[in-house]
Simulated scan of single mutants.
Amino acid sequence: MFTITNIVVASLALGAVQALPQHIHARQDNATSTPAAPAVPVSTPDIFDDLLTAPTAIKRFQRLLTVGEGPEGPELLKGDDLRKATVFTFDRNAKPAPGAEGGVAVAANIGNFPILTGLGISTTVGFLEPCGINTPHVHPRATEMLTLVEGEKMEFGFVLENALVGPKQNPEVAGYLNAFEATVFPQGSIHYQFNNNCKPATFVAALNSEDPGTSQIAQNFFALNSEVVDATLGFPGQINSKNIDEFGASLPANLARDARACMAKCGQ
């Protein structure tokens, strides 16, 4: 079983990147004429101005899902307009950032699916290629429950806060998932997923915040002052102020190809 340390070191050596595609679901504006006027698109900033200041939940849903304010009240959107406001597509073919090889993660959150505002939930679907890794990261505002829906023996690990175990004991909670098995990553825990197989894997992650946030551990650690990084790692002969910028620049943004053994096993 790969430890988080193995994953971080491998991501340093093998790097690749991905980006979370922004599927902006612009809904339709409320018209004020009588009878109800056709729905017209509005910009995302305008949507959030209304959603975040709506006095009640029903007012927020009216802003998203209705149009017009005639004598009989607002009218529900229809057809494609209603679909755009209520359906999010997790595009398996979404393009990651240039150079990505490990896969792609597509997130539905308050930033790209406005109907989630105030609902306290979001979802990410991850498409991991053979030997792909979702490198160690944390969600500062959410607990995650992750279910594998395609693949087998997808490895995972997480580390909680300090003092779970003794000072010289391994604190990593590690395991693997088969299809339709799930695990949980508590809020703030460092965690990763690794598809140590020669076939693609797909997972669905539910998070209990519409704005969970993500912070990649290695990438953001190496963004710190190089002297602090040197002192923390304690490996001046390997990573020091002379080469820290080179290491930091080569880190993957998120999903990375890892495990030379896996790649060799799969003939890559």
Rank of each mutant, 00 (worst) to 15 (best):
H25L: 14
N6A: 02
F2W: 01
K168L: 15
F185E: 03
A182Y: 04
N112M: 10
C131N: 07
V138R: 05
M263D: 03
N254P: 00
V159I: 15
L207S: 05
N112E: 13
L128N: 00
P71K: 12
A13H: 09
P130A: 05
Q18L: 06
A163D: 14
A107G: 02
F48W: 15
H137N: 04
T202F: 00
P136K: 01
A10H: 03
G73S: 08
R141T: 05
K84P: 00
P21N: 06
H23C: 11
N162R: 09
T143A: 06
G267A: 14
T86I: 12
A31G: 14
C266Q: 12
N170D: 15
D258S: 13
S215T: 14
V9W: 01
Q28V: 11
Y176S: 15
V229Y: 03
N195G: 05
P114D: 04
G234D: 03
D80T: 11
Q169I: 13
I239K: 04
T183Q: 09
G267L: 12
A253L: 14
G73L: 13
N195A: 11
D80M: 05
H139Q: 10
G267P: 01
T5C: 02
F235S: 10
A57W: 05
I4W: 00
N93Q: 13
E129C: 00
A163S: 10
L116K: 06
N243K: 12
P74M: 07
V104F: 00
T202Q: 10
A142Y: 02
N170R: 09
N162V: 07
V204A: 10
N6V: 00
D29N: 15
